[in-house]
């Protein structure tokens, strides 16, 4: 049985217009990602990584080209249908967390369930608690977001992305604001989620983090430059050891 295509893009382009100036952020991107893949997206700043991921996450629309998500032709969907897709199929993780301020970790994680219209979740509090447990924050459930460290906040954001059991997890520099050790822990969490069957796309600037993925896409100037399978994948243990080697010797 052939694997299901979770993502399929056909000649996707995105042009930003600012008055007379046109920025071609993406040009004719063709990409297929199958169920269970774990893809790292790298590339220089301004190469179009975020623009691409936002389109994949249905947060933005392409200027031209077609996008199929789980076989659904996204271009043809209404605003409400897009909202429902974001709610049911996608967990998006931002570099800047985008949590609600003055709000507890639990309430933040419950939020996607508030907008769930399928009725497939019965006890949102229980589910949110479970998701927070998965990211190791069971003892921080009632802390407000501003009482948490950056790494903890990002883990709340990840729990929020997991709580509605999406097929696809998209992460835009989730580890960008975190120290190396915390980054490795987050990457390891992605590996675990991937092992549980989730399809994951993550943008990162750090090669050590990209090394956790199964496949790496390199972008330049709005196009995919290289797309290859990662052979010697990092694990949490190997990455932590490397980290010690590079930071240990002093003088």
């Amino acid at each position: 049985m052939p694997l299901k295509k979770v993502i399929e893009t056909k000649k996707i382009s995105r042009i930003f217009k600012n008055g007379d100036i046109e920025v071609h952020a993406l040009t004719d991107i063709d990409l297929v990602i199958e169920e269970g893949e774990f893809v790292a997206i790298m590339g220089a700043s301004g190469s179009g990584k975020s623009t691409f991921l936002n389109i994949l996450g249905c947060l933005d629309q392409p200027t031209s080209g077609d996008y199929y998500l789980d076989g659904v032709h996204v271009n043809k969907l209404s605003k409400n249908q897009l909202a429902d897709i974001r709610n049911q199929k996608i967990g998006f993780i931002f570099q800047s967390y985008n949590l609600l301020s003055r709000t507890t970790a639990l309430e933040n994680v419950e939020l996607p369930l508030v907008y769930d219209r399928t009725g497939r979740f019965s006890n949102s509090k229980e589910l949110a608690t479970k998701a927070l447990g998965e990211v190791g924050l069971e003892d921080r459930i009632y802390h407000k977001t501003n009482e948490l460290s950056g790494g903890q906040q990002q883990r709340v954001a990840i729990a929020r992305a997991l709580v509605n059991e999406p097929a696809l997890i998209l992460s835009d520099e989730a580890t960008g604001n975190l120290d190396s050790k915390t980054s490795i822990e987050v990457a390891d969490l992605f590996v675990r989620l991937n092992n549980e069957g989730k399809t994951i796309l993550m943008i990162t600037h750090e090669p050590e983090i990209a090394q956790f993925a199964k496949r790496m896409i390199y972008m330049r100037d709005g196009r995919i430059l290289t797309d290859e399978i990662i052979k010697d994948r990092s694990t949490k243990e190997s990455a932590l050891k490397d980290l010690e080697l590079t930071t240990e010797p002093k003088e």
Partner: peptide
Amino acid sequence: REIGTRLAIGARESD
């Protein structure tokens, strides 16, 4: 920003 966050995780405009 709050509205953006809510939209991103699947709130409809009407919500």
